[in-house]
Design a protein around this nucleic acid. Structure first.
Lengths: 199, 199, 199, 199
DNA sequence: CATGAATGAGAGTTCATTCAT
DNA sequence: GATGAATGAACTCTCATTCAT
């Protein structure tokens, strides 16, 4: 009807995600995805007309997930510091799980001259969220931060650094967790909130 | 073998660098390099047997340059804080100039499953250098840093974040400079050394 | 079988005619026709099993129209010369209108090794009609023609030449009209009949 | 050197000519030509990048031949009538020989929206040549023609008609020769020159 | 009757790699 | 050493045709 079978479309995206996670962006061919899905060459073209189109659809899913992530962190938590800790910890965890599988391909896509406005927007949103938490937390005395905006940027840059390194094998999970702990320590988050944080 | 050969080899690398800087890693074909060098297809194979081999040779050159960079920062400077400021400023500057042209291709190479031990080593060296400067500077009272190792890592991660963003268009030069300033401010570097820093 | 079917068949032919007129013969795909008709792929196959079959059906319609054309020219006209002038003028006019839209595709079909007996028959019929008119007109003193058969062929060949050129852009409407006038002049058609000819 | 091997280029064109003569324009694939030449897929692309490019090269050759044809007709002949007869006879002969093998493909190319300026130019040149011969011949009393320009057009149109019919099987060689004879008769070419004409 | 998702053969095109000169 | 024509594998994309619903 509307878009062929939405179910099949989702199935293709699911399989394609693994392919992109394993091979990056540029190296992926339509044949790779056809093989991963066990469908025919022509069949795939009924749903997507290029690897780029598939990848963009995946990035869109990614974006939605990211938006949910913050909402999820806020739910059931009252202290800003708590939210902050949970939000960042969860992000760092994600780097080393299948959840961040598309990041490498995403960078490659960006290098390939793809439109990066989505990714830029995501980073900006992340910075704003953090800034807000720092501001509120600071006002309530849950943490110490004289310059919420710059501090939010600094933290996001460091997380971004962890992300790229996690995908190139330049950093191990334990190190990343340790580094995050250090960043949080500097905020002098009052005890009681900080260390029941693991997602 | 002969001297003539080495000269040509260097010429090829020089031309290839531009190609990789412009097209990334995966998109580069032997033909691209042949065209950029104005030599014959077969001729190129006498020196390198794949784009990968060429790229690895370029990475090796990069590494040597990076090593020199710290040595250069140290030369003619006595204050640790001064060295630190100069070293970091220069790195951030590089991100937005041709000097960092291979970075994007380097990431792509890493994503492609290439050996990243060189790049990891480079990061480690950078962290160690920073840690050393922080330790010495702190002892001499030029700056404030209670945890040199973790702080060095935090700064390097942020710089790494700037690097990737600078190549995907996610950050502008002014913002990066501002962010670096903030990172340095936190070290409370005593006045007089900090702001004559531009490379 | 049913009346409903025949209606749809005609609808398909009507839409297909436009497609063939626009894209020629070989370039037309079943998909083109499916799209032009707004029906399903499978649906089309219920009526025609290939583009060739559709095109043949269209050619058959053409043939019927051509037969009517002469009958129409004869109706309400008594002078042979008048009929002749009207018949040829109308044919030349047709070349530059949608009426001859299938001609280009028809040639292509012929080149593709399709059966051309229909088209040959059409030409022969045209020659015979002309020959008859020349004979009668000559006998009645309405025009001058010593060799009706050969003259009929000569005229038909020239019209055929105009047809192909009109479709390749090799001749303009005004030129074709001028050329036809010249051919008619040679027959010395007595004044009074010749120049009220436009269809 | 300049254009790979000119010899091979000519070889490809020679083989391709047969393919186009047999299959028309649109139906010809690069693979057809590759097979006809016994070379590799990639090899062909070194010389031509599409069937269109090959076909255009062939049309260019064709054009050169056509130019030579008139020059050849003029050589060793003094009477205009003689030249005219020879020139036209030879053209009609060509229709039924391998010499005109590309005509069908040429029409198809024109229908496909290809650039027809060359073909139009060729027809114009032919008309001009004929007009000139008729004018001179008429002045010298070798033939009778009151309207050289229109007559030249009429003859060329008829020849064009013969051409298309010869390729669709709509006319036989004998008929075409007979038709040409009729066209020449009308010019009342004085005996002695006309019938030693066969090329 | 009618639909439209699915198939797979085949066309176009590019490139790493070889090899005779 | 150096050349560049030649090869053939691999990839993208399109369509005629089928078939379960």
């Amino acid at each position: 009807m509307g878009q062929k079978s939405e179910e099949k479309r989702q199935f293709i995206l699911k399989q394609a995600r693994e392919v992109f996670a394993k091979k990056g962006y540029r190296a992926v061919t339509m044949k790779d995805i056809v093989d991963a899905c066990g469908i025919s060459r022509g069949g795939l073209y009924l749903y997507f007309k290029s690897t780029k189109e598939i990848f963009l659809a995946l990035l869109k899913q990614e974006e939605e997930k990211a938006q949910n992530r913050f909402a999820e962190a806020v739910r059931d938590r009252t202290s800003s510091a708590e939210i902050l800790v949970w939000y960042l910890s969860q992000q760092v965890e994600a780097l080393f799980s299948w959840e961040d599988g598309l990041a490498a391909a995403g960078y490659e896509y960006a290098f390939s001259g793809g439109d990066v406005s989505d990714q830029t927007a995501r980073l900006d949103a992340s910075i704003r969220s953090l800034e807000y938490l720092l501001k509120v937390g600071s006002r309530r005395g849950e943490l110490v931060c004289t310059d919420p905006h710059d501090e939010a940027r600094a933290i996001c840059l460091a997380v971004e650094g962890m992300r790229i390194l996690s995908h190139t094998g330049g950093i191990r999970r334990e190190d990343a967790e340790h580094d995050l702990t250090y960043l949080l320590q500097r905020l002098q988050i009052s005890q009681g909130t900080a260390f029941d944080r693991k997602p």
